[in-house]
């Protein structure tokens, strides 16, 4: 066997061993950037508060609400039946069984929907399915469900139906059932008339 072959064999083996020296490039991202972009552009991940309230009232076992705010905020107020997983802890192993499952629809919420959407992005990127975001977050929840606004006189029946549902939901979730007056002119406090007396013109005094 010529020296050249031995040299070539050593070269190949050496470079093959070199492969083992590579640091492990383990990426958390299981979803390709293109697919992620497609999912981000799809607004179907946003669920309306009414839809969520409906499913909660019906006791849908396939709904799993996750509060991504801090524990302190969660203890202050949270939607009944929701679980608190702060956004920065989402990818920890202890929550993996909650988030990486196929059976339930997971809905994230925060005060608005920015943090919840970030949570959605993190978990989608790590390959989980059936993830949703509550549109508008808790602010929207309070505006629509907890303190629904009475529709105006001229609004169509659908709006009234929605209002009566929201009123019922409000009682169900223990919010104030009182009616918040709609902003129309009748109830608005009347402005006091300010009378401005015009100064009488004085006759020119003196002369020139």
């Amino acid at each position: 066997m010529s020296k050249r072959y031995i040299l070539l064999a050593i070269l190949l083996l050496g470079s093959a061993f070199g492969l083992l020296m590579f640091p492990e490039t383990k990426s958390d991202a299981k979803v390709s950037p293109t697919d992620l972009l497609m999912e981000i552009n799809d607004p179907a991940r946003f669920l309306e508060t009414d839809h969520i309230a409906q499913r909660l009232i019906e006791g849908d076992p396939g709904l799993f609400l996750i509060d991504v705010r801090s524990l302190y905020e969660y203890e202050e107020y949270s939607i009944p039946g929701s679980v608190n997983i702060p956004q920065e802890e989402l990818l920890l192993d202890q929550w993996k069984d909650y988030i990486d499952q196929e059976d339930m629809d997971i809905v994230f919420y925060s005060n608005g929907d920015v943090y919840a959407d970030q949570a959605w992005m993190l978990t989608t990127q790590s390959g989980s399915k059936n993830l949703y975001v509550m549109k508008g977050g808790l602010n929207e929840w309070f505006r629509t469900i907890m303190k629904p606004e009475k529709p105006g006189e001229m609004d169509p029946t659908e709006v009234y139906d929605l209002y009566s549902f929201r009123k019922g939901a409000s009682i169900f979730f223990g919010g104030s059932a009182q009616e918040v007056p709609a902003l129309n002119d009748d109830n608005a406090p009347k402005k006091k008339k300010v009378v401005v007396k015009k100064k009488k013109k004085k006759a020119a005094e003196g002369g020139c």
Binding site: A9, L12, L13, A16, L20
Partner: peptide, 16 residues
Amino acid sequence: NELFALIFTVLAVIVF
């Protein structure tokens, strides 16, 4: 993949 490449290379050299 890296380990497979190494095993395959060793096999190849043995075959040679």
